[in-house]
Nucleic acid binder design. Structure first.
Lengths: 195, 195, 195, 195
DNA sequence: GATGAATGAGGATTCATTCAT
DNA sequence: GATGAATGAATCCTCATTCAT
């Protein structure tokens, strides 16, 4: 049944879109499974046909979002020709663009609430691990300041990015994209103080 | 009756300590009101005699913790003689010491879960506002880099600190206090890269 | 699914019957939601699937009962050919028969406790309003004594009927239906005293 | 200790006044014992020093009110010289005056909610019993219509009076005292219809 | 595959009453 | 006699999940 398969995929897609929208506006735990089904235009039972449980839907959304984000970020890592400053700038640009294009997804992806859902511990750890690996490589290449711990720095940089972006998605009018990028880059590259 | 009043204060204190311990280990929403009462050695009703509801206890704990932290941080702000680098280093030291001395409190205070509890929006906003004011003053004094937005930078720095400290409290063995301090300071003062 | 719909309606019916029986014997506030569910042979949650809350069930029962009673009483109002005495007698007969046929429902419907449930303010007001309208019409037709206020008389007559019937349902052996009817009619039509 | 005794009586009086006011405005079950104590300016424990429990306070208030009302009504019964019409008129006047002078007390005394409190079953029964005895006497004297059951008529008359007065206390502007009295008297003495 | 009525364990909160001071 | 902090049984309602249709 090709039509049936298409319909199944379509149903799953609608559930995920409903999840992205509702999780973004109410948070995961405050989103009722009936509300998800209603928003997706299906019966509650259908949710459990496509996902193990509500957290399964959240996990699918977040993982898919994470993969998409990491795929984009991966393009930077591959380009060995870039110097450190350029790589940082590219990374920031990618994250800001991602936030602009998929704000609903990002609100859930960067949402600190998700910490309690064990999913995002995985997500955080993956994101941090990537940053950590990069810092380790840079340290090996002598690019990193000697006093800096790659592990700590990775946490700090990720925290800085997620916290700032999460705020910016909710309050997009508080800063324009260029200022946001410039500030985050400057902070990472040479601190905020004039020299 | 003075004895009665003392006993009431003592009961409240025990409830708050039970809250600090349980909220730290299970999070606010996963801590049952009965567990709080049991841990404090009182009946459930007593919790509601001292606080409006479970969130009221959380709010009291967080607010008291916040005040304590801000009071310590305030000593830095007052010392106008400090140069920027010294002020940053002092601030970091204070936060790390606070985290070491009151790890349970900090786990709840810096815990992103609290975001969903509306309490910590207040807390975050207060912390960010303080950092923001400091940056504005420094900008006025020409200390800040021109490209940097005080508002964005305040969010970024607070996110960096809270995210890192929250991680460090949970995994204290991943880094020693000096490395943590050195990395956070270096990042804020001149970025992580060698120059 | 038609079978499913039928089952849903059947479940609702059983909840309402459980409500009629339990509310009649214990009153609304002394009837536990679990008792209602148990009596209806369903889980507690099912009660809240069909009604907003316990009061919602009570409201549904009372409103349905009221509609049934008013429908029967309406037949009298329509028969314009009846003289005053005959109309009163018919009305009394209808109410007594209704009380005999659905004693459980009437215990709740006429139960003064319901006053506190805000529901029966509506019920009382509707019943009184009907009687009031009738009295106003009769006053306009010169049938009413000049000293009589239709508004007050309506309250008095309704109070007389409800209070008497509520008592009679609980103590059916204290008077037979004919005596009850005769006394209530005589009181309304020409007072209780011989002339 | 004469001063102590006086103080005790005074405390009891304040509790009863608090009860009259709060029971009238919120009903018995919706009045918290702490609210009673607060309104009386004493501690909760004091309530239980003067009354067995909350219902005990309600009982005391209602019984005292009932005795006062019956005492006034008793003056009519004693005056054997009165003819039936005059006795009815006097009784109505007394009840209306009582309602005007002590509206708070009457709201609780005539409040149908009290039915569920077992207290008012006693009260109702006493009031009805008095009316019943009067009707039996009148029946023996040949004053009552032959078709009328004294027992039923007593219920009907009491229901009529209580229901009407309870309404009038809450909505005093819907009718003036004279119209109220005239209507109630006319209904009892010769029905509401013109002849 | 889709449905949606039914489930029931679970948890927050209330409030009349007590009793040590 | 008065106090008021402490009690804890009692009850309402929620909502993720299931499974017969």
């Amino acid at each position: 049944m090709n039509a049936r398969e298409r319909s199944k995929i379509e149903t799953r897609r609608r559930l995920m879109e409903a999840g992205i929208a509702l999780f973004a506006s109410r948070g995961i735990s405050d989103t009722r499974s009936t509300a998800l089904a209603e928003a997706a235009g299906v019966a509650v039972g259908t949710l459990y046909l496509h996902f193990k449980d509500k957290e399964g839907l959240a996990r699918a959304i977040l993982m898919e979002g994470l993969e998409a984000l990491l795929a984009e970020l991966g393009t930077v890592a591959c380009d060995a020709a870039l110097d450190v400053g350029e790589a940082v700038r590219r990374q920031t640009d990618i994250m800001i663009r991602f936030a602009q294009e998929r704000p609903g997804l990002c609100r859930t992806l960067f949402d600190p609430e998700a910490v309690r859902w064990q999913i995002s511990t995985e997500i955080m750890d993956r994101v941090v691990a990537i940053q950590e690996r990069r810092f380790f490589d840079q340290a090996a290449a002598g690019l990193l300041d000697a006093a800096v711990s790659p592990r700590v720095a990775a946490r700090a940089v990720v925290g800085m990015l997620l916290f700032s972006l999460n705020w910016w998605i909710i309050h997009p009018d508080e800063a324009d994209a260029e200022t946001l990028a410039a500030t985050l880059n400057r902070l990472r590259l040479s601190g905020v103080y004039a020299r």
